[in-house]
């Protein structure tokens, strides 16, 4: 199956029409668990972006060498390798951020979105396309995490990026994990509404 999309289309697809969080509803645990602030969402998003891009390219390069019966273990191994690399790098160069989110970085191994992209895309397409697809999906996740983080940080602690903007805390509830689901749900509805609106306006 040859890929007929350009690199730009692959990236926008990851961010908009197939956004991992809002459209595919994959990897919801981290989306709910860590997106309490914009910064947290951004850091985890960056880590996922790296792992996704590196894993996609690796699998795509070795796609002919992977025995079909053991492809899932091989994917997991690849992801685990890159997660370890990112984990080590973060621990060494950004120790303060790592102290806050170290445990979530290790969890990336089990993120459904990465395995799914390897299975759906990277194991069939060329390394170049896989790179763009990984980048798009990673960016989509990053953007999703940041948007959720923005809403939760603003409503939960009245701040953005740690700067107090509202001067009061509107709804403490939004800091709690369960509120993550509310925000994700609202965001999904919003994205669907935007898409619907866009389609309708184009039609008529």
């Amino acid at each position: 199956m040859a890929n007929d999309k350009t690199s730009l289309q692959l990236i926008t697809r990851g961010i908009l029409s197939e956004n991992p969080i809002f459209k595919l509803a994959l990897s919801m645990c981290p989306a709910v668990g860590i997106s309490t602030t914009v910064m947290n969402g951004f850091m985890l998003g960056i880590a996922v972006l790296f792992v996704q891009v590196f894993s996609s390219v690796t699998i795509s390069l070795f796609k002919n060498k992977i025995h079909p019966r053991i492809r899932i273990p091989t994917y997991t191994l690849t992801i685990a390798t890159w997660v370890t690399v990112i984990d080590l790098a973060l621990a060494a160069y950004l120790p303060e951020a790592y102290a806050k989110m170290g445990i979530f970085v290790k969890l990336i191994v089990a993120f459904a979105i990465i395995t799914m992209r390897l299975e759906m895309f990277a194991c069939k397409e060329s390394a170049k396309d896989s790179f763009w697809d990984g980048l798009g999906m990673g960016l989509g996740f990053l953007v999703g995490m940041m948007v959720i983080g923005l809403v939760r940080e603003l409503l939960g602690s009245g701040a953005i990026l740690g700067y107090d903007v509202l001067g009061f805390k509107p709804l403490l509830f939004f800091i709690l994990p369960s509120a993550g689901f509310f925000v994700v749900g609202l965001m999904m509805a919003f994205f669907n509404w935007v898409e619907l609106f866009y389609k309708r306006s184009r039609r008529g």
Binding site: F62, K65, I66, H67, I70, P73, T74, L77, T78, A80, T81, T84, V85, L88, A89, A91, A92, Y93
Partner: peptide
């Protein structure tokens, strides 16, 4: 193939460890 991929992965991780 699994053995080879494990060894490859170990090499990558080892290099990352040495660097960091």
């Amino acid at each position: 193939r699994l053995t080879l991929s494990c060894m490859l992965a170990a090499t990558v991780m080892g290099v990352a460890f040495l660097v960091t």
